[in-house]
């Protein structure tokens, strides 16, 4: 006769990843390395913003970049060619996000002794990367003007987990119905502690403010 035995588990499936992420954060802190996890939708200007930012800070801060994508190495090559900083490409094997274990594998390929700041350019996606803690010291996201000012309402978790929201492509603001004050209000409804910095990666406007925010993070 068949009997069914029940084994109770009652455990969040994210618990193990959160443990890995916390351990990674401690390790990085001990090594004096800051890991910035940068997220956004595809096409918001993550790579262009990074190039502007890195070229502004690289004289004083030793930066490395990890590019995560489903396929190709166009971003890693572009970063290396335009900034000269070490840049590696991670492939997620079809997955829409990186978790702490994948981030650790990427970090193993960088010389952390010679690095102050690692920027992880996560897979372009406003949903999944917010669900998985990468072990980053801080989380940032880019919202670009053409995407619309209502995105904090539509993708609340992304805006909840980010310490910094960069509003990019401010140079095209006159052509879109994007209300920056309304957008800030929506962001702060979700996350009262989020810092919001408007930039234009194309004209360079706001990049210094972004660099200043990052210097503040590195000094603590």
């Amino acid at each position: 006769m068949n009997e069914v035995k029940v084994i109770e588990i009652k455990k969040s499936v994210f618990a193990e990843n959160e443990k890995d992420a916390d351990a990674l954060r401690v390790e990085l802190k001990n090594k004096g390395v800051c890991l910035l996890n940068l997220m956004s939708a595809p096409g918001s200007g993550k790579t262009t913003t990074l190039i502007q930012l890195i070229n502004r800070i690289k004289d004083k801060i030793r930066v490395s970049v990890m590019e995560a994508d489903i396929d190709s190495d166009v971003d890693a090559v572009k970063i290396k060619e335009t900034t000269g900083v070490p840049s590696i490409q991670l492939h997620t094997g079809g997955m829409c996000h990186l978790d702490a274990e994948m981030t650790r594998q990427g970090l193993d390929n960088l010389d952390l002794e010679e690095t102050d700041l690692v920027i992880l350019e996560n897979v372009g996606n406003l949903v999944c990367p917010a669900e998985f803690d990468t072990g980053a010291t801080c989380n940032a996201m880019i919202l670009s003007v053409p995407e619309g000012d209502d995105k904090p309402l539509k993708y609340p978790l992304m805006f909840t987990v980010c310490d910094l929201v960069i509003i990019n492509k401010t140079d095209v603001m006159p052509y879109f119905d994007f209300d920056i004050e309304r957008c800030k209000r929506y962001i702060h409804q979700r996350n009262p502690n989020a810092t919001v910095i408007p930039v234009s990666a194309k004209t360079g406007e706001g990049i210094e403010a972004l660099a200043e925010w990052l210097r503040g993070k590195l000094s603590c």
Binding site: M1, V4, K5, V6, E8, I9, S12
Partner: peptide, 14 residues
């Protein structure tokens, strides 16, 4: 907001 494994069930031959 839960994504939890509540339990597993195992058929036992008796």
């Amino acid at each position: 907001n839960e994504v939890e494994i509540r339990e597993i069930q195992v058929k036992e031959l008796r």
